[in-house]
Amino acid sequence: MEPGFEEYARAVFANAGIAVGGDDMALIALIHAGYESASAALDQLDSARFPFEPIDPSRAPER
């Protein structure tokens, strides 16, 4: 987990008016680690070959 993650997370939750305990933070850190792994995996896509394009998920995909 990157340095300062817990402080950042606690600040976000405090701003949202949500009290979190130590058990919460342990689970959140675990889930966030999975998220960070997923996010890092997304960097594998070659952005030159696949530039950002808007998606309309209510329309059929086209090749």
Binding site: A9, Y35, I55
Partner: peptide, 22 residues
């Protein structure tokens, strides 16, 4: 915890996800 962790997602990651989705 899943819901709380959703509050911590940085916006640029969503754009990355959409590139992959497309």
């Amino acid at each position: 915890a899943i819901m709380l962790s959703n509050l911590l997602r940085p916006a640029p990651a969503v754009a990355k996800a959409d590139r992959v989705r497309a």
